[in-house]
Design a protein around this nucleic acid. Structure first.
Lengths: 145, 145
DNA sequence: TGTGGGGCTTCCCATCATGGGAAGGTCAAG
DNA sequence: CTTGACCTTCCCATGATGGGAAGCCCCACA
């Protein structure tokens, strides 16, 4: 199987397959006489594993860990669960962050007329809010001339 | 005011202030005799605007649009609301996507013993799921020798 | 046997927003 | 004069992916 077939069979683009090989996520493939990479069912299975992990939001680094655990028949499922749990926490944090933005934006959009007049509470909010840091500690900054 | 002061006053790092100038988000600042950038209250206000827009998840491109609308006193609030509404939709889409991942992961984690045994439904899912594309159309691929 | 076209190779660049750090100029205080 | 904090520009890295060029390889068809 050439890289194109492996791509079709796994759903991972040829570009990405080569990249995964380059960064060491998958082993360098054997080459046929014409210098084409040669794939078998095992490799396609691995690529599908990667594809699925990515679709669940695991980073390539996490995916690598999971891949090694998958191939380690003597793994402890606790190790896998730890990776998943950490990722769950990360997803929850990011979702909460975005929901915070969403809530604010929806409120602002609700308050905005959205008409021909220039008056706009959205811009008022962007313009008038507090800076990132109000001044927790004056920060011994040197005043220039 | 030098860039450090502007940074402290706006919450935008000096690095980012220079970058924003480089990509044309903010105008090149005047320089003092020593070639240092010089900032006033107006610039700090603009930087705070950018900071706030970024904290609400607007891209720099969207932020640029909002900044221009802010400075255009004859804007129509509908234009602002359009940008916000599109961003809201984008946030909702991304949140939904992550919630989908979350739901699946929580289920898998729940089903995983997380103990010393190797048996793990999380890995089973990653290994056994369908590929990205099952075969909607066989895709006239040429079979190599 | 020649040609066309598709697949494969490598290599470089772009994205998006940000940070890190080096090398060197400037300035004020001690 | 030294020290140290500040500023300058320039280059590189991140994470995961796509785009595209230049150049082989090989098969099918005329």
């Amino acid at each position: 199987m050439n890289i194109g077939q492996a791509s079709d069979a796994s759903g991972v683009t040829a570009k990405m397959i080569r990249y995964y090989e380059e960064i060491g996520l998958i082993r360098p493939m054997g080459r046929s006489g014409n210098n084409y990479r040669v794939y078998g069912e095992d490799e396609v299975h691995i690529l599908r594993f990667i594809k699925r992990a990515r679709s669940l939001g695991f980073s390539l680094e996490e995916t690598e860990t999971l891949l090694k655990l998958w191939q380690d028949k003597s793994r402890e499922s606790a190790a896998v669960k730890d990776v998943a749990t950490a990722h769950i926490a990360d997803l929850e944090r990011r979702i909460a962050e975005m929901q915070g933005m969403l809530k604010t934006l929806k409120h602002l959009a609700h308050c905005c007329g959205g008409d021909h007049r220039p008056n706009c509470p959205i811009l008022d909010d962007l313009a008038g809010s507090a800076p990132g840091k109000m001044s927790p500690e004056p920060k011994k900054t040197k005043q220039p001339a």
